[in-house]
Design a protein around this nucleic acid. Structure first.
Lengths: 244, 244
DNA sequence: CGGGCGCTTGATAGGCCTCAACGTAAGTGG
DNA sequence: CCACTTACGTTGAGGCCTATCAAGCGCCCG
């Protein structure tokens, strides 16, 4: 419990169930194998079918899929405390890649450990189900971005969501946070070309005083941008623990 | 166990864990409250925050979100055996609506029942987590449709996925299945206008002998279409149960 | 029989992509 | 210290893909 980055995951689950000492103890087994990976390399590559997941302790990663024509779609970004590759463990297949955006630190969790802990401590299984539901809610919102929002609404919505997520884990404020992404990352996440992302960012800068540069995001006209993007963060908010 | 439609859900979970008699018995409590709803009405409307989920026994539904400008994005369709509104129970909020596409039959499951069963039978919690992961994989694939596939690739991919899903639950074959959706449903799912869906369907009909009419889908040049859409059904396949 | 729903087709407009060029800043090696 | 390279960002011109508007058809059902 000494290193806060080791416990971002536990903190997240604690928002759902009040964790007992036993439960906290057993989760230590998740952090036995620690890896450090530098930005750019692949953590999991597309098509790989191993049976391990990871818990992100430090840094940002993105999960993506590459199509035959070379186009890449980023599905989601993960920040400390998030699970990586949980789906590939449960479904025994990985059809997407995971790439560190920054240098990262992860704990490797084997399928056996995971399933064993779940059967001994059912509340943890429920808590992870809750966390997965929260992740899915983000993917759903992202899907709505791509399906029915214009490029500028979509970009605005995305920047607002990132801010809210960072604020929730104490990495900045919702209207001013550090963000290691490039415009190419944004393009691949938003289904746009990098060129068009640049234009959209200019539009947002001129109309809502949105700054995206040098690894830092600042949103001047926050309330107006929330309105413009129809951003509603309910799906992100931590609630009172459902289970005591 | 007499009515097969009551057990589509159990069949689905059994693909992940080998269910004991005790586990089958306890799940009967999920089916105590049975509802029938006719097409068109809302099952859950956007913004509602009740604490019940449903298990779909018969018929098709779609979950969607409506934006301020009136545009609708359909996130996913559910078919018998699928959970409805699991996220809204766990996250205690529902920011999307659920609409029956056909007349449907559902079992209502309260949050208490669900969480109680999970704590008594941890394997069921894990099994539901697995099912939720499978649903998320479909949402992810849908997101890639919207982000990086052209209208025709996207439509083709979607029709192929529907076929594979129907075949898996024994409701038709992958290249010929009953489908109660209108072109408007397709449009709202694919992020297109209904007019353009119509044109795309004509293109697919002329180039891949894809028929979409009268509630029935038939795909003539199946292999060529799979190629065209880069359809890879790994994320749908039932695997050998992970847990015995 | 009228009206609504779903489907079809054409004309036009516009959002976003592609291609291409250029700017800026940081790193690297001689 | 400077030439070179690389990564990232910026801007313009032209064109394709998809939306919008509009009209019309067939069918079912009240």
């Amino acid at each position: 419990m000494s290193n806060p980055s080791e416990t971002a995951f536990e903190l997240k689950l604690a928002a759902f169930v009040a964790l007992s000492q036993d439960e906290l103890d057993v989760m230590k087994r998740f952090h036995r194998k620690r890896l450090t990976i530098s930005a750019g390399g692949d953590l999991v590559h597309q098509g790989q079918s191993d049976r391990v997941a990871y818990i992100l302790a430090r840094g940002w990663v993105c999960s993506y899929k590459i199509l035959a024509n070379g186009a890449r779609q980023i599905v989601d970004f993960q920040i400390p405390g998030d699970f990586l590759g949980l789906r590939s463990v449960l479904l025994q297949t990985s059809d997407h890649g995971i790439e560190p955006v920054t240098d990262i630190e992860v704990s490797e969790v084997s399928a056996e450990d995971l399933l064993e802990v779940f059967s001994e401590f059912p509340r943890l299984a429920t808590a992870v189900l809750w966390a997965a539901s929260r992740d899915e809610a983000m993917v759903v919102e992202h899907l709505i971005d791509l399906g029915r929002r214009s490029a500028s609404e979509r970009t605005a919505h995305f920047l607002l969501e990132l801010g809210a997520r960072c604020a929730l884990v104490g990495e900045g404020e919702k209207a001013a946070y550090k963000c290691p992404l490039t415009q190419y990352h944004l393009a691949d996440a938003l289904g746009l070309s990098a060129v068009h992302v640049n234009r959209v960012l200019r539009y947002l800068r001129e109309n809502f005083r949105v700054m995206f540069r040098d690894g830092h995001v600042a949103i001047g006209d926050y309330e107006r941008l929330v309105d413009f993007a129809e951003f509603d963060p309910v799906y992100l908010d931590h609630q009172t623990p459902l289970i005591r």
